[in-house]
Design a protein around this nucleic acid. Structure first.
Length: 449
RNA sequence: CGGGCCGUGGCGCAGCCUGGUUAGCGCGUCCGUCUGGGGGACGGAAGGUCGCGAGUUCGAAUCUCGCCGGCCCGACCA
């Protein structure tokens, strides 16, 4: 993308409305614009990041064998009355009435809908196990939205639902989700720690929240410092291998890690040596639940087992806050100049900065680099504007592209451009072809020049 | 929903207390010139129903009341 043809309304100053760093940076980098309290438009740069996060979630869900679908944002109140949650959910639920006077609601979650789909079409144990998920906008009418997309009213979320014949099968589904979530967050450059959590209005007590440590986190967390050394990494795992999934769960959840909801000081002190006790804050970016037959029983989601008896299915649900992750990643990865995108979610793979727009050689070198990046199947944001060098660098730093290729007449005289890492700030001069080679390497692409 | 604060060109703010010419400043935007490796300089220009509505007054950005919107703390929450 050529910056001269793009839409990137960056702000030099901090908008007064934003208090925390991710909100400020998202506004300044031209990623979002507030449309109403807790409701945001995603401008082109923000939209790219949102789509990248979504893509990773999709890929990892499907890798784990989960099946994508899409349910609506507006739902009929009838199903919610059936489950008993129409009243339980309270003011958080946005209720609307259609022209016929029917009660509708903008879904805060989808257990009722999915259960209804399930009971309509699944009747036999032979159809199990089944895990369906979707990524859709949700709405919870928070009393006090804040922190930008981290706690909006409208939010984009992946929610998945597993249906199993037995508790043991459902526990495996739970474990499988835990593993796939670990992979998912790591691909986004995040360390998200599974912590024992409260069930909340979703229900169930077999549940973990995934938290990213950050000073601005909304939850207080207590954990054994050993836990931050754990990495899932690139290990292969067979998602159908129940013992293997169970082993990962044990590896990642055996140490003390709880939010302040479930924190128990006595247990903490007993189980964790003082030197390893940590108290911090965290941002919740996902949660997994096993809730047994809580919905299947009242809503009649049953299957015939081998003996022909109708039995309620065991269910679980699992969420990842896709829009919230955009903010969470920034909270976890920024400096005083701006955002630092992990390679997995960056809106552009690299930036190309032309220091002297209009200089024949600089223009030509930039065009060639731009074409080379595209030939790798990657996307560069080419700053071909008439801005001065300082302004271009400031913009690049602000929007946080992990790599920058700087091209100017001075370097070109010696046949080199400059490759700079946003994260370390380190710059290295090299011929253009070598810079492309490095970009290819970083993103696991074969350079073909 | 309780408590506090704020709405003035796109953004950040001053002016309000103590009403009175054409409502200022910085940034950004547009045009021009000089520039050109970390938000450059100079010259010119555009852009504002002072959140909305009532009221007080000869006169309201300024005072009063109501409403709307937003921010912060708390309770609540992915």
């Amino acid at each position: 993308m050529r910056l001269s043809r793009y839409f990137l309304p960056v702000l030099k100053e901090n908008p007064a409305e934003a208090q925390i760093v991710s909100h400020r940076l998202m506004l300044r980098a031209g990623m979002i614009k507030q449309a109403a309290s807790g409701i945001y438009s995603w401008l082109p740069l923000g939209y790219r990041v949102l789509r990248n996060i979504e893509r990773i979630v999709h890929e990892e869900q499907q890798r784990a064998g989960h099946i994508p679908m899409l349910m609506p944002t507006l739902q009929s109140a009838d199903l919610w009355r059936e489950s008993g949650r129409y009243d339980d959910y309270g003011e958080e639920m946005l209720r609307v009435t259609d022209r016929h006077g029917r009660d509708m609601l903008y879904g805060p979650t989808n257990e009722e809908l999915i259960t209804d789909i399930f009971r309509s079409h699944v009747g036999s144990y032979r159809d199990l196990p089944l895990t369906l998920y979707h990524i859709q906008w949700k709405f919870r009418d928070e009393v006090r939205p804040r922190f930008g997309v981290m706690r909006g009213r409208e939010f984009y979320m992946k929610d998945g639902y597993n249906f199993d014949l037995t508790e043991a099968d459902a526990k495996h589904a739970y474990n499988r989700h835990l593993v796939s979530y670990l992979r998912t967050y790591e691909r986004m450059g995040l360390q998200a720690i599974p912590m024992k959590a409260e069930g909340g209005p979703i229900g169930g007590d077999y549940t973990h929240e995934f938290l990213v440590l950050a000073e601005t986190g909304e939850s207080g967390v207590f954990y054994d410092s050993e836990i931050t050394d754990l990495r899932f990494g690139h290990r292969e795992i067979d998602y159908d291998d129940a013992p293997a999934c169970q082993a990962v769960l044990e590896e990642f959840t055996s140490r003390y890690a709880r939010t302040d909801d479930t924190h128990d000081e006595a247990v903490f002190n007993e189980r964790v040596p003082e030197a390893r006790r940590r108290q911090a804050r965290g941002i919740e970016v996902g949660q997994i639940f096993y809730f047994g037959t809580k919905y299947s029983e009242p809503m009649g989601a049953t299957v015939a087992d081998k003996d022909g008896n109708r039995v309620p299915v065991h269910m679980g649900s699992h969420g990842i806050g896709v829009s919230r992750l955009t903010g969470a990643i920034i909270e976890a990865s920024h400096d005083d100049k701006g955002i630092i995108w992990p390679e997995g979610v960056t809106p552009f793979h690299c930036g190309i900065v032309n220091l002297k727009q209009g200089d024949t050689k600089a223009d030509a070198a930039c065009e060639a680099l731009y074409a080379s990046v595209a030939a790798l199947g990657l996307e560069a944001l080419y700053d071909d504007t008439e801005e001065r060098a300082g302004a271009k660098f400031a913009t690049q730093d602000l929007i946080g592209l992990p790599w920058r290729i700087t091209v100017g007449p001075r370097g070109l005289k010696n046949g080199v451009v400059e490759l700079t890492s946003r994260r370390t700030g380190e710059s290295e001069e090299m011929p253009p072809a070598a810079a492309i080679e490095r970009i290819a390497q970083v993103y696991g692409k074969a350079a073909s020049i």
